[in-house]
């Protein structure tokens, strides 16, 4: 029984679909492991992001920023404009980062759809939400205490998000380390037994 399965072909197109993904035997992969798409199959968590998903993320992030900026441009308030653009940019960057969680998400049709929906909601919803808070933004720019409080809140939120994301990344690395540990233990046992057998063929 094989512990690992490889696909040796370097495929183009939809490699996510099991129907379209060519599967070959171990023998055919005795050549170039590192250049093969196949390594994806043994990744504990798939973390490759497709070109299309990248474009979607960029578009969604751009949408958030542009719509946010446009909404504020309509309000013609230069002071709040900065806040809105910053919010849009932060939301966009955050969204791209999560989406790039190519590292974090297993990519399939459902997650791609989810990204589009999140992008649309983010693009339309966030600026609308910002519009609701327009008076509050104005007040913040005038009141230094509120400004500092908001700063702390933002810092805390960023830290929490960053911490959560890095913890998840670390968990992924740990999964890779755990599979290596298992492989090493198994291989060391078999290699040692084989060399003992070679040295003492009578045993």
């Amino acid at each position: 029984m094989l512990d690992i399965a490889f696909t040796g072909a370097r495929s183009r197109g939809n490699t996510r679909s099991p129907q379209k993904r060519p599967r070959t035997g171990l023998a055919e992969t005795s050549t170039i492991l590192c250049n093969s798409n196949a390594m994806r199959d043994i990744l504990p968590i798939q973390r490759h992001m497709s070109f299309h998903a990248t474009i979607q993320s960029v578009l969604a992030a751009g949408g958030v920023v542009i719509t946010g900026a446009a909404t504020v441009a309509v309000s013609q308030n230069i002071g709040v404009f900065t806040a809105f653009v910053a919010m849009g940019a932060a939301a966009g960057v955050f969204y791209s980062f999560l989406a790039k969680g190519g590292g974090l998400l297993v990519e399939n049709r459902r997650t791609v759809k989810a990204r589009i929906i999140v992008g649309m909601i983010g693009g339309i919803g966030l600026p609308r939400l910002g519009e609701l808070f327009l008076p509050w933004f104005r007040q913040i720019t005038l009141d230094p205490i509120l400004l500092i409080m908001a700063g702390f809140a933002c810092a805390w939120l960023s830290y929490s998000i960053g911490h959560a994301v890095f913890q998840k990344l670390d968990k992924r690395e740990n999964a890779i380390a755990a599979t290596l540990a298992r492989a090493a233990e198994k291989s060391a046992r078999i290699q040692d037994d084989a060399s003992t057998q070679r040295e003492n063929p009578d045993n």
Binding site: I4, S30, C34, L43, L180, K186, A194
Partner: peptide
């Protein structure tokens, strides 16, 4: 970090393959 993952996964594959061949 992805490069390091490649290395680690290649190590894993090499170890398992050696075990498989010996067995």
């Amino acid at each position: 970090p992805e490069g390091m993952d490649w290395l680690i996964l290649s190590m894993q594959a090499a170890l398992l393959r050696r075990a498989y061949v010996l067995k």
